[in-house]
Design a protein around this nucleic acid. Sequence first.
DNA 1: AATCGACATGTAACCGGTTACTATAAAAAT
DNA 2: ATTTTTATAGTAACCGGTTACATGTCGATT
Lengths: 332, 332
Amino acid sequence: MKATIRDVAKLAGVSVATVSRVMNQNGYVNSETEQKVNRAMKQLQYVPNQMARGLAGKRTKTIALILPDISNPFFPGLARGVEDIAQNNGYTVILCNSDDLGVKERSYIEVLKKKYVDGIIFATNNLVREDLERLEEAQIPFVMLDRAPDMKSGCVITVDNFGGAKAAVEHLLDAGCKKIAHIYGPKELVTAKERLEGFEEVARKQPWYTPTLLVPGDFTIDGGAKAVEALLRNHPDVDGIFAGNDLMAVGALKALNRRGISVPGEVAVCGFDGVNLTEITQPELSTIAQPIYQIGELAAKKLIERIDQSSSHYETVELGVSLIVRDSTKKS
Amino acid sequence: MKATIRDVAKLAGVSVATVSRVMNQNGYVNSETEQKVNRAMKQLQYVPNQMARGLAGKRTKTIALILPDISNPFFPGLARGVEDIAQNNGYTVILCNSDDLGVKERSYIEVLKKKYVDGIIFATNNLVREDLERLEEAQIPFVMLDRAPDMKSGCVITVDNFGGAKAAVEHLLDAGCKKIAHIYGPKELVTAKERLEGFEEVARKQPWYTPTLLVPGDFTIDGGAKAVEALLRNHPDVDGIFAGNDLMAVGALKALNRRGISVPGEVAVCGFDGVNLTEITQPELSTIAQPIYQIGELAAKKLIERIDQSSSHYETVELGVSLIVRDSTKKS
DNA sequence: AATCGACATGTAACCGGTTACTATAAAAAT
DNA sequence: ATTTTTATAGTAACCGGTTACATGTCGATT
């Protein structure tokens, strides 16, 4: 029914090895023979069975992307970047949502091993060193985002959270803010921590600085809103807020709105990440934009590079972020 | 290095067939033998090779989800629904972005055939009957969203676009609107067409109805904004807008905002889809919500059902939509 | 003339499972 | 007592590729 390599070989009057050589463009093949084989393949509408290829050749042309939750606005763009590059290189992407649960991440890794994926991209936070070491042993190339556990192998892609946070605060100062608060994300996350440190780096030197200007959110809209409520209780005179991510900035905006506090008039707000959401709020949100799509692209490129050359040296790349000024910080 | 079924067989002192039987729980196996095998598997940390299984058994435990663009806010929720169900059933999901380009869709189908995915979910619009027929021939189960090309096989999941649109208009009327416009999406898309028809069904009976109240958007934020600009030129007195999807509703909101027209005071706005975005605009958007996540879940369930029972009868399921009233339509 | 390397192609083992078929003993049916 | 069924387990072919190794030709080198 469905043509196999042996059918092609028979029709072309050659051996299966020759057909394989033609397909993979390796080894010596006379160009006339090649023509014959190609014709036979076309005639039979031959489609090589990836499964068999994988079994024999140990390559599945499949990579996996493990992320906390594709519903989180940060990830679709990233996933798209990964997928585009993958597609261009003949790879296919398996999507895995871990909800940032260590168990799920680990169980996914097991499944992915069974499926012999060629590599894995992690945009997730709960893997411990041990897990990564297991990957190393299994010889599965991987790329991690936002996390730099120093190891012998693996590639880590990060962005300049510290610098970005500093830029955000400086921008708020430039905009004329006289008392700036920071809503920070879960301290277990490096990104959240670095942004907080960036904030402090600049804020500490300001006359108005006091530790109670640091309030915890949890990287969610709701968390951001609640943080603002809490903040206003202690500091009704705050006139600038730097949220650790855009979702919390949105929450902050909502809370301020409910309270009838005008943005940017009374309080300026700046987010971090640069997700699309920031363009649809009212006012539109200023933010420190990460090159989300490009991070995805880069992660995929690096991973494929590693797969193709089966190299695994440790490597880390830091990307820049950029301040995008929109209405939420235009105090005029 | 890595344990194979033969290693397990040897260690357990049985044949590979027996090991296979234990793994797949089929055929007769003495419970003591089973214990031995299980012990051996544990001891060797045996992980069956999915690739080999697929080759021999023709099951890859992998499904594919082809959608236009995961970056479009509508799809992450859907993808999540699909992935959750897939995961619960031991399936893995390959994500494919087609940009609604027929060529890409088709090329993906080819790749997926090579990879022997067990089934495909299409949330995309450019497949022609011929493509589906090819899938039928190839015996690949599939589920389609939003599109009901009647065929012999396949499962189609739709929502009540027509009814939803009617509900939207009626809601705007209830809110006191005296002249309602509709921004419709690409007419090639059934969803857009049905919503437009729903709008007309109710609007046509109204004294203020005139065809120029129908303006084209293209299901994007920008398209929605431009549509409003155009609309206001002809109908400065419009006081209600039903956008064919939420993105256009957001665009409408932005355009109205720029013009200094208050929402809902002067113009009420209602969207369609129920994406998360609608909760972060100012004012929050009323919308006709589709059960997005559940659609994803259902699609995956139906697909897996078909795979497991290798049934392929044609089937169509229509889900309801629900009006969510928020500030954008609260006149008074 | 003998040797060597580049070119060309075939044979068959192998990747790691599944499963059809066969064999055998014990239990059940006749 | 004989036939059938049921329970248990092994052998080996097969899925559809890849590739190591063997074989052979032919012009170039020594």
